[in-house]
Amino acid sequence: MGCFASGPHRHRGMHAVAVGAFAIAALSGCVSLPPAPAPSAESTPLDALVGLAAERLASAEGAAAAKWQTEARVDDPARTQEVLAGVRALAGQHDVAPEFAELVFIDQIQATESIQYARFAEWKLSPTEAPVERPKLTDVRADIDRITEAMIAELSGNRHALTSPDCTTVRDRALRSTVQNLELSDLYERALTRATQSYCVNAETP
């Protein structure tokens, strides 16, 4: 089963920010942890934020493994509302507009769910690829909460980049760099694009 990029070197060059979620994914036999790559020559102020978004997406591996063949659903409205309430509270503490933070995390949650659905489809079609061991969903969610708080801090620390006229250009560069450094699969690239689509909604018009 391919979690990130396909091919014999699919896990080479993953970024250090993904360590926490990648460790969770490893519980389902998904990934290994190689050395972090050298910094990109095209580094941007949004690299850390996009990297955290990718790390949060990777939590879908552990979440899917924990929910597989249980009564737990991929889409959990109660959990979503709990997360969004926490996002709004954290945004207020970090001087980030709660409405903006909520919009960002709605995209992030939906992108993460898309990966879980993809894994469920894979495992139904190829049962031998399904996880043998399941992480505890509470542990997965605790790691997700940690990443969420770090993302809110990055939203706060990068107000200028997120509201500048060149926000879209900067975000797209960070997206390309993250995809390249982590050697993300097509699924993860598309999910990360979805997760970051609202970053520049408050950007000034050039």
Rank of each mutant, 00 (worst) to 15 (best):
M1I: 07
C3H: 10
C3P: 13
S6F: 11
G7M: 04
R10D: 15
R12M: 12
H15Q: 14
H15A: 12
A16I: 11
A16R: 11
V17H: 00
G20C: 08
G20K: 09
A23I: 00
A25N: 05
A25R: 00
C30D: 10
S32P: 01
L33R: 14
P35L: 07
P37F: 01
A38V: 12
S40I: 00
S40H: 05
E42H: 13
S43Y: 13
T44M: 02
T44G: 02
D47Q: 01
D47E: 02
A48E: 12
L49I: 12
L49R: 08
V50T: 00
V50G: 01
G51N: 11
G51C: 09
L52S: 03
L52Y: 08
A53I: 02
E55Y: 00
A60T: 03
G62L: 00
G62D: 04
G62I: 01
G62P: 02
A63H: 05
A65N: 06
A65K: 04
Q69A: 02
T70W: 06
E71I: 06
A72C: 04
R73Q: 14
V74W: 08
V74N: 02
A78G: 06
R79T: 10
R79W: 13
T80H: 11
V83G: 03
V83P: 02
A91G: 06
A91H: 00
V96H: 01
A97H: 04
E99I: 05
L103I: 00
I106P: 04
D107P: 06
Q108F: 05
I109D: 06
Q110C: 04
Q110Y: 12
T112W: 04
E113C: 00
S114T: 06
S114V: 09
I115A: 06
Q116H: 05
Y117T: 07
A118Y: 03
R119P: 01
F120Q: 03
F120R: 02
E122M: 12
E122H: 04
E122R: 11
E122A: 10
L125K: 11
L125M: 13
L125D: 15
S126K: 10
P127H: 10
T128S: 10
E129P: 02
P131W: 01
V132D: 15
P135K: 08
K136T: 10
T138Y: 01
D139F: 08
V140T: 07
R141G: 05
A142S: 13
A142H: 15
I144V: 15
I144Y: 04
D145R: 09
R146N: 06
I147F: 05
I147W: 04
T148A: 10
E149W: 08
E149P: 01
E154N: 02
E154D: 14
L155E: 00
N158P: 00
R159W: 02
H160Q: 11
H160G: 08
A161H: 01
A161G: 05
S164A: 15
T168M: 14
R171M: 11
D172Q: 14
S177M: 11
T178R: 07
E183T: 13
S185I: 09
S185R: 11
L187D: 02
Y188S: 01
L192P: 00
T193K: 12
R194A: 15
T196Q: 09
T196K: 07
C200S: 01
V201E: 11
E204P: 01
